[in-house]
Write a protein that binds this DNA or RNA. Structure first.
Lengths: 170, 170
DNA sequence: TGTCATGGTTGCTATAGTACATATATTGCA
DNA sequence: TGCAATATATGTACTATAGCAACCATGACA
C-alpha cells in the first residue's frame, strides 16, 4: 500500500474528519469575501449616523437589553472612563439613553433609544434583504445546496466569541 | 388552483430562480457570523502593528501592486491631503515606501515594504489556516457539501466591490 | 516663455476614540 | 458615624482620521 493521505484514511472510515483540500479552503475564502460584501452593504446606509464602534454598542444592547455603564464597558472591552465619554457622544447623538437605576443611585443604566434600535433593526433587515437577493438568483435546488453547505460550516465553526468580532467593530 | 408561491412556480421550471425561504436566509446569516469570526481571528495577531484602515492599504497594494499616491487615495475613497499624511504614518511604521516616479517627477509611487507584505501574507495564511481547522472537523462528504454550497453562493453573490468592503476596513 | 493643469504637501481645524489618574457620589458594613 | 468599596464622571493628554484651503513643484502646450 502507498502512503495514505488523510482522505484515503477517511475512505475506510466514511464519516471521519479529513484534512481539507485546496479547493474547498479556497472556495470558503471566496464565500467569506462575498458575505463580507453583504455585511458591508447592510452597514453602509447607517454609517453616516453611527460609527462602527458605536454600532457595536447597538448590537450589544439589542442582544442583552439595558445594561449598567460598567457592565457595558466590560463587554466592549473598553476602559470605564473612556466609555463614559464615549457614551456621552452616543447620548448626544440620540442613540442611547442614560437613566438612574431604581435600586442603586450610583448605577447608570444604558438603554437604546427608539432611534438606536431603529438603526440596528434597519441593518439587520438590510442584511436579510441582501442575502435574499443573492439567493434569489439561484434555483430551488441550488438554494438547498447552499443551505446544506452553510449549515455544515456554521456547525463546525460554532458561534464566534463576542470579543472576536469586536475586532472588526461589528 | 390556489395562489402560486415562487417555489410552486419554480417546480414547473425545475432550475429557475426562486424566492428563498426563511431557513436558508437564516442559515446564511449564521454562516456569515461564523466567517466573520474567522476573518476577525486572522486579523487579531497583526492588529497591534497595523490599524484596520492601514490594513486596507496593504490589501489594495497587494492586489494592484505599486500605485501613485493619488490613485491609491482614490481607490480608498480618501481625500488626497488626508491620505498624504496617512501615508506618512505608514511610512514611519515601515509598512509602505514612497519613491519618485521615473518618468514624472511630480508623481510619488507607493509600494509595500517587506514588512508590509509580510503582514498581509501573514493574515492570508492565518485565514486559510482558520478555515482549514474548521473544515477539518468535518468528514470528506460534509466538506463536499460545504464546497458545493459556498461555490453556489459565491457565484450568485459575485465579488464584492472594493469600495464596499472598505466600509469595514478590510 | 508664459500660462494652465496636474500631483502632492502643508497649515489649520475638528472629531472620535482611548487611557491614566483623580474626583465625586453612593452604598455597605464595622 | 466613619471608613472602605463600588460606580461613574472629569481633568488631561495623546493618536488616528479626515477635510478645506493654500501652496509648491512639475509638466504640457500655445
Amino acid at each position: 500500500m502507498t502512503l495514505s493521505s488523510p482522505a484515503a484514511a477517511a475512505a475506510s472510515r466514511p464519516d471521519a474528519p479529513v484534512g481539507p483540500g485546496y479547493e474547498v479552503v479556497d472556495k470558503s475564502l471566496t464565500a467569506s469575501r462575498a458575505l463580507l460584501g453583504v455585511i458591508a452593504r447592510s452597514l453602509a446606509p447607517v454609517m453616516d449616523s453611527v460609527t462602527l464602534p458605536q454600532f457595536r454598542v447597538l448590537v450589544v444592547l439589542s442582544n442583552f437589553g439595558p445594561l449598567r455603564m460598567g457592565e457595558l464597558a466590560l463587554r466592549l472591552g473598553a476602559n470605564q472612563s473612556s466609555f463614559s465619554r464615549f457614551a456621552e457622544r452616543m447620548v448626544a447623538g440620540g442613540l442611547i439613553a442614560r437613566s438612574e437605576s431604581t435600586e442603586n443611585r450610583r448605577e447608570v443604566i444604558i438603554s437604546l433609544t427608539k432611534e438606536g434600535s431603529r438603526i440596528y433593526a434597519e441593518v439587520t433587515r438590510a442584511r436579510r434583504q441582501e442575502i435574499s437577493e443573492v439567493l434569489s438568483r439561484l434555483s430551488g435546488s441550488e438554494q438547498e445546496t447552499v443551505l446544506a453547505g452553510f449549515d455544515a460550516f456554521a456547525r463546525a465553526a460554532g458561534e464566534p466569541r463576542a470579543d472576536e468580532t469586536l475586532i472588526l467593530g461589528i
